[in-house]
Design a protein around this nucleic acid. Sequence first.
DNA 1: TCTCGCCGTTTTGTATGCAATTCGAGGAGA
DNA 2: TCTCCTCGAATTGCATACAAAACGGCGAGA
Lengths: 234, 234
Amino acid sequence: MAKKESEGGGGRAQAVHRVLKRAILDQALSPGSKLPEDSIGERLGVSRTLVREALVRLSEEGLVELRPNRGAVVARPTLEEGRNLFLTRMALERLVVETLSGKLTNEQIGILSSHIAAEEAAKKERAPSIRLAGEFHTLLAQMTNNASLIRYVNELVARSSLILALYGRPHSSECAVSEHQELLDKLIAGKTEEAAALMAHHLDSVTTRALLPTDGDRNIKEVLSAYAVAEGLA
Amino acid sequence: MAKKESEGGGGRAQAVHRVLKRAILDQALSPGSKLPEDSIGERLGVSRTLVREALVRLSEEGLVELRPNRGAVVARPTLEEGRNLFLTRMALERLVVETLSGKLTNEQIGILSSHIAAEEAAKKERAPSIRLAGEFHTLLAQMTNNASLIRYVNELVARSSLILALYGRPHSSECAVSEHQELLDKLIAGKTEEAAALMAHHLDSVTTRALLPTDGDRNIKEVLSAYAVAEGLA
DNA sequence: TCTCGCCGTTTTGTATGCAATTCGAGGAGA
DNA sequence: TCTCCTCGAATTGCATACAAAACGGCGAGA
């Protein structure tokens, strides 16, 4: 009845995919890191074939960049891409909110509440709090039962971690836990427009708080990189 | 200056991907068709490795279903998935409209106008008119310069073709050309809300015109399939 | 000292081979 | 006649082998 191999959907290729994705989202592999097929395969005990498949998947999700003949690296979204990504995220999460408003079951409310509690508890540790904050959004999406919506929100949330890793202020809480609680309250009360506005504000505050680089050197690097890509200089 | 090999981004894997995608969107490969790795590879003059990579990509885009150990088939979205997909599409295309409203350049207007003219000209032929109608939407998305938005709209438009292939009425024009023209007018005039409403109506009319099966047997099959998946009977 | 180009090393691109799994036909038993 | 089992054929899962391309160091020339 129970499957072996640490559960998971299907074959080992999926497993490799999950491992890499997790490592990227935990920032164990930070943006720009090289992802050589053979060393990854050696470390994970699989052949390059499977690693390659996982890398293709990750590139489709926008988490890694596949440079022809030059290997894969963890994606390094530009500031501009980051802003656009949050715009897209807002459009989709608005749909999430509209779909869920006033329709949450008690069970769902319980799940969300305890998740918020977990966020509160982990507020001090940076890595888990980032992950939990993202999970709140994917959890909401999940509850819509809309497959494409779920997939895209998941993807965008994952990529948001990359953005925040690159451009986020070190000590700002990316998602204020209280905002999650407020949002949940509005959703329960069925106040769709207020909930949507709150979600918009929530995401917007993340972008303005995080995307405007605070310290000069980061700023300079970013400015230069924008020019560099425009000139094809990597 | 000009690249060889029928253009295209990069390696042959991408080429295989494009070929299959095109074939699926043209309905030369209809939903449910088997996609055996070796026969495809043989036909295209590449090895199974490359075909496999292309299939993985297509499955990430939702165009093919990858059944472990049982091969790949062209995706056969359910009616429910279709409805959800159009909901997601609406949310994203609303963002497209909001982004573009009042900001189209003359060059862009020209491109869109001549595209609409092409749609008008091809109105009689079924396959090209479906493709052109989709391209109008991807063209709009393209003009937002928002990479993630572009990607998702592209994907959703492509999958919409599958939905329409499965559930569309044979003789309804899926996208009324006149609606495209109206939408363009509103965009040029900068009437954002009217344009958004028009886009919503446009997509909604597609779903209601097309997604409600007209003939009884199709209806029955679909109803049964919903129950079947719920029971795990494929 | 700086730049450019050559060549060995490393890494990717792709084909192929073998093991494992699934599918389907045909036959035995009821 | 219908069901179930068995076995061969076809297909996928995965590893490996080889060719091609990119990276990096070294030395020649300015």
